[in-house]
Amino acid sequence: MTRADYTAIARWVPQQARVLDLGCGDGELLKFLRNERNASGYGIEIAPDNILASVRNGVNVIQKDLETGLSGFGANSFDCVILSQTLQAMHHTELMMKEMLRVGREAIVTFPNFGYWRHRLQILLGHMPVSSDLPYQWFNTPNIHLCTLTDFEGLCKTLHVHILERLVLEDGRAIDALPNLRGSLAIYRIKAA
C-alpha cells in the first residue's frame, strides 16, 4: 500500500467514522484514517509482527483469524469495513463478503487486478505474474483467490452487492479507460443490496 492508496480509501471514509480494518497489517492505514478523518475503530490481524507494529502505531488491533468470520461484531456496528489487499488471500471469499456487509454499513475492498496488462503479458510469456502489487513467486504467494475487475463485479452481482464507487489505479494514478487492462489495483466501495 502506498500513500496514494491510503488517500483514495480515506476519500470514501466519512469524518468520525467507525472503521473496522480487516487484515490491518502494521496499522498505518488506521492511523492515517484517525489523523485524516478522525476515524476510530479496530484493526483485525493475525501476524504477530503486524500486531506489534499496530500496537506501536497506537491503533486498536485485535488478534483474530478472519477466516473464522466476524461473529463478535453486531450488524451495522461500523460505518465502514475495509478489506485492503486481503480478499485474494482468503479461503472463504463469499463468507467474508457477506460478513463485511453485515457488520458494516459500507465496505471498501481493494485487491490487485489480475487482469492488469503486465500480468497478462507475463502469462503470455509463460510465467506467473510478479509485480509491485503481486510481489510473490508462485511457490510462496499467500494469494489463492486472485481475480480481475470483471470477476469481482461478477461476484458482487451473484451476492446482490451494490457497487457504489470504483477507483482503479496504476502506480497510484487513476485509470479511466480500459481499467481491467490498465489498472493494477482496484478499489471498490460496496454495500449490501
Partner: peptide
C-alpha cells in the same frame, strides 16, 4: 476473548494479543 468482546461491544479502545 470474552473480555475483548465486552469491550468492543462498548466501543472501548482495546488491543488484544494472543502470545504463542
Amino acid at each position: 476473548k470474552e473480555i475483548v468482546q465486552a469491550l468492543t461491544d462498548n466501543r472501548l479502545n482495546v488491543s488484544y494479543v494472543e502470545v504463542d
